[in-house]
């Protein structure tokens, strides 16, 4: 499943793509923080584990916990979480051309489509290696993520009052760490766009919070993406052009990049 016959002399598990995938997959250890924050937000251990199994995308999970934990409604929590998951759909759009998964593996491929697996897959030179990299990363991360979520949830439950341990600050720090690589990275869109969107989103959230139901201020902040992104900026990169070959999107940064910048940096 992970790799068909390969043109490489090495067995698939000894290829650079597999080693990269394994290394990147280990970042899934931060599932510990997902587990602890899920429980701190008021979910049970099993509800927290279920979010990791079903959503399996750090940003979306942290968003769900964050909005619920700060007293927001279910609708605002689901909306924020879903909007953050939108980028995975765009990864799928690119990966469907790179990996060409058959109808049987497609459902699994889709579930494993996250920042890290996309980054590793798109960094490979051939389709076979992209598949090896994608599945090694995805499966490793999935297994590690589920295990560490459970550990974190059990630990969070045992600890009691989350505020006493600063877990509310941990949630804020998690979002800082998730957005950081998108602000300091050298994506194809340049740096001013993301920085402007970030600052505007924070201002909009602060200003609107006293006037809207809890959780909705996040969605108000999200409109910063439209304000900054919709006006047509000059430059070739904004030109959609005719349908282009796969290599056009060879960097995941196009749709936001890996949510943990350290992933990209650790790639050999």
């Amino acid at each position: 499943m992970t790799a068909g016959p390969t043109a490489y002399p090495l067995p698939w598990w000894r290829t650079p793509a597999a080693r990269q995938g394994l290394a990147v997959g280990l970042v899934g250890l931060y599932g510990v923080s997902a587990g602890a924050l899920g429980v701190a937000a008021g979910l049970s251990v099993w509800q927290t584990v279920l979010t990791s199994l079903l959503i399996f995308s750090g940003g979306s999970q942290f968003a769900l916990y964050g909005v619920l934990g700060s007293g927001g409604g279910a609708a605002a929590a689901v909306a924020t979480s879903t909007l953050l998951g939108l980028r995975n759909g765009f990864y799928g759009l690119e990966l469907s051309r790179v990996l060409r998964p058959g109808p049987l593996v497609r459902p699994l491929t889709a579930h494993l489509t996250i920042d890290e697996s996309t980054a590793v897959a798109l960094a490979q030179d051939t389709r076979e290696q992209a598949r090896v990299g994608f599945f090694t990363t995805g499966v490793t991360l999935f297994v590690v993520w589920q295990g560490t979520t459970l550990l974190g949830a059990l630990a969070g439950e045992a600890m009691g009052d989350p505020r006493a341990y600063g877990l509310d600050a941990a949630a804020a720090a998690a979002f800082v760490a998730l957005v950081w690589p998108r602000l300091v990275g050298r994506g194809p869109g340049g740096r001013t766009g993301p920085l402007a969107a970030a600052v505007l989103a924070m201002v909009l959230t602060l200003v609107s919070a006293p006037f809207v139901p809890t959780g909705v201020e996040v969605l108000v902040g999200a409109t910063a993406a439209l304000v900054v992104g919709l006006p047509r900026r000059g430059g070739r990169e904004d030109d959609p052009g005719p349908p282009l070959p796969v290599t056009r999107d060879a960097t995941p940064g196009r749709h936001g990049g890996p949510h943990d910048g350290h992933v990209a940096e650790e790639l050999p």
């Binding site: 957005v179 959230t205 196009r254």
Partner: peptide, 21 residues
Amino acid sequence: RVVPLLTVALLSSLIITQGFL
């Protein structure tokens, strides 16, 4: 253009709700 910025904007807003509200 909007999708990557949407991710950035949402994560930034969440920093505020979690850390400063």
